[in-house]
Amino acid sequence: MDAPKILSLRPVRTAVPGDETGLGELDRATWSTLHSVQPRPAPPYEPFFGDRRPPGDHLVAEAVTDQGALLAGYIRLGRPTPLACNAHVRQIQGLAVAGWARGHGLGRTLLRACAEQARRQGASRLTLRVLGHNGPARALYEAEGFVVEGVLPGEFFLHGRYVDDVLMGRSLSL
């Protein structure tokens, strides 16, 4: 089957329970050692949503394509800790864009929607973690105002080499 051709993009929306199958498939299709420290998912697959990852923590991007409306990407926004003293911080805990949908600005669109959602939740700060060897993601985050706030050198051993865990953050003040 040929890759879908994007005809238009729908506004980013909050995920609903019915998105679970599609988001699980998208997550597995975009799995890469460029951004994941977990082994490649294998059947039986874990549910995409869970107690710590409810639908409401996910924003999704949909595209109208020549093959119908398809989930094209998602971003997960959560709290880094349950502590009251940390309630002003939100953390990006996952971002994926389908291979066929890359190059249309969806990653940037999802990041901006996520920042707006975090502001609506009362957050004043947004953080994330990215693997040091993921240059494209780091460039996107930097273009959206994130700065490196810390590096855990050699935190992960992936495919025979040590990889840094890079901590990035940005203010949500306008």
Rank of each mutant, 00 (worst) to 15 (best):
M1A: 15
R102F: 07
G68T: 12
R161E: 12
F156A: 10
T65G: 10
H104R: 12
G99T: 13
D57A: 15
V60H: 07
L106Q: 04
R138W: 05
F48C: 05
A3C: 02
G99I: 03
G68Q: 10
E142C: 09
E20T: 05
K5H: 14
H35Q: 08
D165I: 06
Y45K: 03
P47A: 05
T21F: 11
L83G: 02
P82A: 12
T33Y: 13
Q67P: 00
L111E: 05
L71C: 02
R90T: 02
L152P: 00
N86E: 07
T33R: 15
F49C: 04
G135R: 15
V16F: 05
W31C: 02
G169H: 05
N134E: 10
D2K: 15
L71V: 14
T14A: 08
R52Y: 06
L131R: 07
I6K: 06
H88A: 08
E149W: 09
A87M: 02
A87T: 02
A63Q: 05
G122C: 06
P11V: 02
E25L: 14
W31K: 06
R76G: 01
P55T: 00
G99D: 15
R13P: 07
A98S: 14
L152G: 06
A84G: 03
R10G: 01
F49K: 09
Q93M: 15
Q93V: 01
E62C: 09
A139I: 00
P136W: 03
R138S: 01
F157S: 06
G132A: 06
G107L: 07
A72I: 07
Y141D: 08
R79A: 13
G160I: 06
V97M: 10
I6P: 06
I75H: 04
G18E: 15
S171D: 09
H35T: 14
E25K: 14
R170W: 01
R52Q: 14
T33I: 10
I75T: 08
A115C: 06
T109E: 11
G107R: 08
E62S: 06
N134Q: 09
A15D: 03
L110A: 10
H104E: 10
V163H: 01
R52G: 04
E144F: 11
N86M: 12
E25P: 00
L158Y: 03
S36A: 14
Q93I: 01
S36K: 09
H159A: 15
P47C: 03
D51G: 13
F157R: 13
V60K: 06
D19E: 05
D164W: 09
A84R: 14
R120Q: 14
